[in-house]
Design a protein around this nucleic acid. Structure first.
Length: 458
RNA sequence: GUGGUCGUAGCUCAGCUGGUUAGAGCGCCAGAUUGUGGCUCUGGAGGUCGCCGGUUCGAAUCCGGUCUUCCACCCCA
């Protein structure tokens, strides 16, 4: 009977208390998203595998959860396929669907499918779970929620600016300190071009991204393995050291301009300059840091990229995003530029939990507990309870009248319900009931109208 | 995906190099208090020592596998 039960690796159950805390985060995000003019959509948990494959780079493809075809999926497989022993290739023949890996690619698919009914620029938010077959760690789950905001159908950098404002609003509301790392894919491309490493863009940026972990010397050693001239590497090293010693965003942009000095790089730096200047005007620049090393793996980004980290804990990024000029192009709708970002609700939850930042009274869903310890008065108790509910008082009627009042009070206490209504024979005769305040222990004999008023006032 | 790590009561953990009936604190239940919770006191229940297998006269303890947790890579929210 006592079989060991379990849930899959990297997934979690949520208790009522956890759910109300998570809901608090979702509600905050929704409120702020709609404040900026975003409307919600939802998409299915599963997408066609063809929609998902190839959008997240080689690594991403490996992390997709595939959904086995229904019916007799074996009959279409040749002996060759079996004997080859290539499980990846085989999986593609028996799986047509996959669980979504993020919300951005499904959104691009949505935009293309609904292009005729969408009014551009289209601003949508979406809060739904995604699945990744990653190896779990703290703050890294196989099922987790993403909370996306995207603006599609505009090149305007005001869109990016508004994203920065949203970040500021959200983390202010949640009372978390944060830092937004800002970069631009064009700057990275310009940097690669400056080093004549256009051909090795991905490798180049991945190595750069490791700098704060392994140090500049180790980065130089790894870069030296690429086909690059040593004197260019030396120049790069000089530039990076100088860059890293600066703290002012404008100064960083200045020296980056003089070092990179090619068309694409300067374009990226101009875009970044625009954002930094606006941030300065909007008084949020102190939370923004130009980080020329920030790469972000997702291959669809083409312009601005950003990543938000908590400045109070060592959790990974809690929000990330950027501009993608041609994501819908893959699905047959070219020339639609979008920019968006994703908040990681689960990581935000973990941080708020360790820093104790949730408001106090989130987990108190019931206002009054109605004790029930006399025979044959349930009709009257149900009637009283309904009256309370009609007045928007959240009321919990106890069902089993054989349970001692003492025990019922313990239950109310454990459920953290602030009021208990005690209805005995004397009270019924008078038409007045005992209302007990569970925090102070005070007790009042009141009519139902007064009870309603008292609970509402508290 | 690679390399490590953890798993003992509802929770947090103890259990020395293998040796009788596996412990503590908190929580839970009952009573002291037959219509009054929290504090106190008294008593009580609760464990296939993650799971499967092996070594041994004997395994929570040693070994192998497996699942899970956490960590470092990788990548990311």
């Amino acid at each position: 009977m006592n079989q060991p039960l379990s849930i899959p690796k990297g997934t979690r159950d949520f208790t009522p208390e956890q759910v109300s805390k998570r809901q608090y985060i979702f509600d905050t995000l929704k409120r702020i998203f709609s404040l900026y003019g975003f409307a919600p959509i939802e998409t299915p948990a599963m997408e066609q595998l063809s929609t998902l494959l190839g959008k997240y780079g080689e690594e991403g493809d490996k992390l997709l959860f595939k959904v086995l075809n229904s019916g007799d999926f074996i009959k279409d497989i040749s002996n060759n396929d079996w004997n080859e022993g290539n499980s990846h290739k085989l999986s593609l023949k028996i799986c047509e669907k996959g669980l979504r890996y993020d919300l951005t690619v499904p959104f691009a698919r949505y935009v293309v499918m609904h292009r005729n009914e969408i009014v551009f620029p289209f601003k949508r938010y979406q809060i739904q779970p995604v699945w990744r077959a990653d190896r779990p760690q703290k703050g890294r789950y196989r099922e987790f929620y993403q909370c996306d905001v995207d603006i599609i159908g505009t090149n305007s950098l005001i869109a990016e600016t508004e994203l920065l404002l949203i970040i500021n609003n959200v983390f202010d509301a949640l009372q978390l300190k944060y830092i937004t790392l800002l970069n631009n894919r064009k700057i990275l491309q310009g940097l690669a071009e400056r080093c004549s490493l256009n051909e090795h863009f991905v490798a180049f940026t991945t190595i750069l991204d490791k700098l704060d972990k392994i140090g500049i010397d180790a980065v130089m050693i790894e870069l030296a393995l690429l086909p690059v001239e040593q004197n260019i590497l030396n120049e790069l090293k000089n530039f990076l050291q100088q860059f890293l010693s600066l703290s002012s965003n404008s100064q960083k942009i200045q020296i980056a301009k003089s070092f990179i000095n090619n068309e694409i790089g300067l374009k990226g730096l101009e875009e970044l300059d625009f954002l930094v200047n606006h941030a300065k005007q909007l008084n949020i620049e102190h939370n923004i840091k130009f980080d020329i090393l920030l790469a972000r793996g997702l291959s669809y980004y083409t312009g601005t990229i950003l990543e938000v980290k908590s400045s109070e804990t060592a959790m990974g990024s809690i929000c990330g995003g950027g501009r993608y000029d041609n994501l819908t192009g893959i699905f047959g709708l070219p020339d639609v530029s979008g920019v968006g970002m994703s908040f990681g609700a689960d990581r935000i939850y973990d941080i708020m939990e360790t820093l104790n930042r949730f408001p106090e009274n989130l987990t108190q869903p019931t206002d009054v507990f109605i004790a029930n310890f006399l025979p044959n008065i349930e009709n009257q108790l149900i009637e009283i309870t309904q009256q309370l509910r009609k007045n928007q008082i959240r009321a919990d009627l106890f069902y089993d009248n054989t349970v001692k009042l003492k025990k019922q009070l313990t239950i109310a206490h454990q459920k953290k319900i602030p009021w208990v209504l005690i209805v005995g024979e004397d009270e019924l005769q008078q038409g007045k009931y005992q209302l007990k305040n569970m925090n102070t222990g005070e007790q009042f004999l009141l009519s139902l109208t007064d009870i309603i008023e008292k609970i509402k006032k508290s």
